[in-house]
Nucleic acid binder design. Structure first.
Length: 738
DNA sequence: CGTTTACGTTTTTTT
DNA sequence: AACGTAAACG
C-alpha cells in the first residue's frame, strides 16, 4: 500500500481514495481534515496521474494555503509547486488579472479593503445629499456587501426595495459601483462577484478554467457565501470533481454572508454526491469533547454528529470568576506562568476573547509578568496610517486613477492642498468625464489656484518621477526608498522627533523588509491587499492572543476562553435573534474544540465597558456546560496564590511610569504588541551585560543597569533618557545594540 | 489652509 | 477611554 494512506482511519481512507465525482466530507473539529485534504491531493497526483496544475485547492487563509503546499511537497516532492492552492480571493485576483479586461477593468485594477470601500460609500452618500445619520456609511457598506455576496446587482436590489430607504441604499450601491469602476478598483466582494460574472458572461473563459482545473478542493465550505458557492458550482460543472470539506457546526461567518446552506445543500446541487462523515477526534481529551458536544447539541439547525475520542478523560474544564477584568487577567497570566514552569511551552497556550477590545487587560497582565505574547489581529499592521500612506503611493504608481489613494496622499505630506481644492478636482473629473489623475494634471482648469495649485503640481511631478521607476522594473523596496526621499515623507517624520513618529519610521522600515521579498510592485501590492489576520501567526514560542474567529482552524494544548459573559459572549447584538444566538453557540463550540488538553473559562463580575464600569452576568452558555465536567477554581487555594496576587497588584501600582493610573498607555501597548507581531533582528540575551548601551524600538537609547534571569526569561533594568528606568524582558523587547 | 477643541460614537466577528 | 469627525479659531 502506498505510504500516502498510512495511518488513516476507514473514513479518512475512503475520502482520500474517492474516485471521480462530487464528495462532501463532513469533518468534525479535530478529525484530521487537513490531513485528508493534503493526502487527497497527493493521492490524485501520485495514483491518479493528475498533473499538479490541474488542481485548484481553496483554503481559508493564505497561511493555510502555504502550509498545504509544503505538506503536499513533503509527500510527493517539488512538483507540487504548480498547484493553485490559495484563498478564494487570491485565486480570483489571479484570474481577474489575466481576464478581467473582458469585464471592462484594466489589468492594473486596485483592490479596495473595507476601509477604502466604506470611505468611498461615505463620499457617495454625501454626493447624493443623504443624511449621514440616517444613512451611516458603515451600515450601508454592510448592506451592499451582503447584496454582493448574494450576487444581487444594484438593479435587482432596487427592484426588490419595498421602502424608500431601501431604494436609497440601492442607489448608493449603483453609484458606488460606478465610482469603483471609474477608479479601476474592486472591493473584496467584487473579486468574487466579478469572477463569477466573468464566467457567466464569457463562456470561453469559463471553459478554459473548467478544462484546466480537473479537480477542485475547497476547505471550510461552511464559510462560503452564495457567490463563492456559485463559483465552485460553475467551475465544477464540467468535470464534477468537487471535493468539499466542512463542518456546519463551525460556521461562524454568517455576518459576512457565509451561508451554511451551501454545505447543507451540497448534495442537492450535486445529486450524486457522496457524503463521508469524520467523527473521530484526534485532538482533544474526552472531557473537552463532551463539553463541546453538549454545547452544540443545543442548536436546532444542524446535522447530527457526535465527536468521540479514544484519548483519556483529562482535566475538567476550569472556571474562574474574577472580581473585575484585572483580576481575571491576572489569573490568566498567573496560570500561564505556572503551566510554563511545569513544562508547557508558551507557544502551546492561547488566550481567546469574543471581541478585540478584551485583549487589553490580558496584555497588561502578561506584560507585568514578563510573559512573551503576540496579539493576532486587532489593528492590523497594514491599517496603520503610515503604512496606508506608503501603500497608497505605490498603488497610484500602478493605477493613477485610484480615487481613494489619490484622496489619501495628494496632500501627504502637507502640500497646502486642502479639502476645497480636492473637491474641485474631483468635480471637474466627473463633470468632464476625465480620469481622476488627468483632472489633477489640469487642476488649474478645475479652478484650483495659489498654494494648492503649486502643491498639486509637485505631487504630480513626484508621481511621474516614481512611475518612471516602475516602468524600469525597479524593485518595490527601492521604489519605497525613493518615495521616502523625494516626497519628504521620511524627513517629516524624523524631523518631528516624536516617539510616535519614530515608531512609524520603524514600521515603514518593516514594510520595506516585506517588500524586499517581492519581485514586482504589482505582486507586492496584491499580497498586501489580501493578507488575513490569521496569516500573521507564526511559531516562535509565545502565547497567542486572538479572537475566537481568528482561532478557527488552530489548536493549542491549553486554551483560555475569557470574558465569558452575557453581552460579550454571546454578543449583545445577537441576544434577541435565535439564529444569531446559534451562530454565537457555534463560535463557542469552535473555541472549546481548539483545546487539546486544558480549557480555562474565565469571566469577571464587573468590567469597564466604554470607559465606565458595569456589572457583568455570566454567559448563558455556561448553563450548557455539563456541571459534572466543570471545576470552579475561583477561590484562591493557597497562601502562595494569595501572595502572588497581592504581589502582582502592588507591582502594577508603584511602577515608575509617569503616566496615569491604568498602567500601560494604549500607544505603548500598541507599540509593544506590534513589536511582537513583527520580530526583527534582536539582541541576544547573551549579549546583554550591565553597562552596555542599547536602543529600544520605542523608548530610544538607554543603559543596562541590572540583569537577572537567563535565556528566554532573562530581564534587564534599563535606564532610558528622559523616561527613567524600565524593566524589560530581553527576548521579548525590541532591543538592539547601540 | 491648518491647527486646536469639543463632541459623539464606539465594540462584534474578517477576506 | 479612545478615536474620529465637525466646528471654531489663527
Amino acid at each position: 500500500m502506498s505510504p500516502l494512506l498510512d495511518g488513516l482511519n476507514q473514513e479518512q481512507l475512503e475520502a482520500v481514495t474517492h474516485g471521480q465525482g462530487p464528495l462532501l466530507v463532513i469533518a468534525g473539529a479535530g478529525s484530521g481534515k487537513t490531513r485528508v485534504l493534503t493526502r487527497r491531493i497527493a493521492y490524485l497526483i501520485e495514483e491518479e496521474s493528475i498533473h499538479p496544475s490541474q488542481i485548484l485547492a481553496i483554503t481559508f487563509t493564505n497561511k493555510a494555503a502555504a502550509e498545504m503546499k509544503v505538506r503536499v511537497a513533503d509527500l510527493i516532492g517539488p512538483e507540487a509547486k504548480g498547484m493553485w492552492v490559495s484563498t478564494f480571493h487570491s485565486a480570483c485576483v489571479r484570474i481577474l488579472r489575466s481576464h478581467g479586461d473582458a469585464l471592462g477593468y484594466g489589468k492594473n485594477f486596485a483592490i479596495y479593503d473595507s476601509d477604502d470601500s466604506e470611505k468611498l460609500i461615505s463620499l457617495v452618500i454625501g454626493s447624493l445629499g443623504l443624511d449621514s445619520k440616517r444613512f451611516p456609511a458603515r451600515s450601508l457598506a454592510g448592506q451592499i456587501s451582503n447584496a454582493k455576496s448574494e450576487l444581487v446587482s444594484p438593479a435587482k436590489l432596487a427592484d426588490r426595495a419595498s421602502h424608500i430607504m431601501e431604494r436609497r441604499v440601492a442607489e448608493v450601491y449603483r453609484i458606488y459601483e460606478e465610482r469603483l469602476k471609474a477608479a479601476n478598483a474592486m472591493d473584496f466582494d467584487d473579486l468574487i462577484v466579478n469572477t463569477y460574472l466573468l464566467f457567466d458572461e464569457h463562456p470561453a473563459v469559463l471553459d478554459y478554467y473548467q478544462r484546466r482545473f480537473v479537480h477542485l478542493l475547497v476547505d471550510e465550505y461552511q464559510d462560503t457565501n452564495v457567490a463563492q458557492n456559485g463559483l465552485v458550482m460553475a467551475l465544477g460543472d464540467k468535470n464534477r470533481n468537487v471535493f468539499v470539506v466542512g463542518d456546519s457546526d463551525q460556521s461562524v461567518y454568517g455576518f459576512r454572508g457565509a451561508d451554511m446552506r451551501n454545505i447543507l445543500e451540497f448534495s442537492k446541487n450535486f445529486d450524486d454526491a457522496k457524503v463521508i462523515k469524520l467523527e473521530q477526534n484526534y485532538r482533544s481529551t474526552q472531557n473537552i469533547l463532551k463539553v463541546a458536544n453538549a454545547i452544540i447539541a443545543q442548536n436546532s439547525n444542524r446535522l447530527e454528529k457526535n465527536l468521540w475520542s479514544d484519548q483519556g478523560d483529562g482535566d475538567k474544564v476550569k472556571m474562574f470568576v474574577g472580581s473585575d477584568q484585572d483580576e481575571e487577567a491576572n489569573f490568566v497570566a498567573t496560570t500561564i506562568h505556572k503551566e510554563n514552569a511545569q513544562g508547557t511551552r508558551f507557544g502551546d497556550m492561547a488566550v481567546f476573547y469574543r471581541i478585540n477590545s478584551n485583549s487589553r487587560s490580558i496584555e497588561e497582565a502578561l506584560i507585568r509578568r514578563a510573559i512573551p505574547y503576540r496579539v493576532v489581529g486587532g489593528t492590523r499592521f497594514y491599517d496603520r496610517k503610515e503604512i496606508r500612506d506608503v501603500v497608497s503611493y505605490l498603488r497610484l504608481l500602478v493605477n493613477p486613477n485610484d480615487e481613494m489613494s489619490l484622496r489619501r496622499v495628494c496632500n501627504t505630506p502637507k502640500r497646502g492642498v486642502g479639502d476645497a481644492s480636492v473637491l474641485r478636482v474631483f468635480e471637474f473629473s466627473q463633470s468632464q468625464s476625465l480620469p481622476a489623475f488627468e483632472a489633477f494634471r489640469r487642476a488649474s482648469e478645475a479652478g484650483v489656484s495659489g498654494r494648492a495649485l503649486t502643491g498639486i503640481a509637485s505631487f504630480i511631478n513626484l508621481i511621474d518621477d516614481l512611475t518612471k521607476l516602475v516602468a524600469d522594473q525597479t524593485p518595490p523596496m527601492a521604489i519605497i526608498e525613493q518615495f521616502l526621499e523625494k516626497s519628504g515623507y521620511r524627513e517629516e517624520l524624523s524631523a518631528s522627533g516624536q516617539v510616535d513618529d519614530l515608531a512609524r519610521l520603524d514600521n515603514i522600515t518593516e514594510l520595506i523588509g516585506v517588500a524586499s521579498e517581492h519581485q514586482s510592485l504589482e505582486e507586492f501590492l496584491d499580497s498586501v491587499a489580501l493578507v488575513a489576520q490569521a496569516d500573521q501567526i507564526q511559531d516562535d514560542n509565545v502565547v497567542t492572543l486572538m479572537t475566537v474567529h481568528t482561532a478557527k482552524g488552530l489548536e493549542f494544548d491549553l486554551v483560555f476562553l475569557t470574558a465569558f459573559e452575557d453581552g460579550i459572549f454571546p454578543h449583545s447584538r445577537s441576544l434577541y435573534d435565535e439564529s444569531e444566538l446559534e451562530e454565537e453557540r457555534r463560535l463557542c463550540y469552535v473555541a472549546v474544540t481548539r483545546a487539546r488538553k486544558k480549557l480555562f473559562v474565565t469571566r469577571a463580575s464587573k468590567r469597564f465597558v466604554f470607559g465606565s464600569e458595569s456589572a457583568s452576568v455570566p454567559s448563558r452558555f455556561i448553563d450548557e456546560f455539563p456541571p459534572s465536567l466543570i471545576e470552579d477554581v475561583s477561590q484562591p487555594k493557597s497562601y502562595d496564590e494569595l501572595r502572588s496576587r497581592y504581589f502582582d497588584r502592588s507591582r502594577s501600582n508603584d511602577s515608575d511610569r509617569n503616566s496615569t493610573s491604568s498602567g500601560i498607555s494604549p500607544t505603548q501597548l500598541a507599540k509593544f504588541s506590534q513589536r511582537q507581531s513583527n520580530p526583527g533582528p534582536r539582541l541576544e540575551p547573551s549579549q546583554v551585560k550591565v553597562g552596555i548601551k542599547v536602543v529600544h524600538g520605542s523608548w530610544g537609547e538607554g543603559f543596562v543597569e541590572e540583569v537577572s534571569g537567563s535565556g528566554s526569561s532573562m530581564t534587564a533594568v534599563i535606564r532610558f533618557r528622559g523616561l527613567g528606568a524600565k524593566k524589560v524582558m530581553i527576548s521579548h523587547a525590541p532591543l538592539k545594540l547601540a
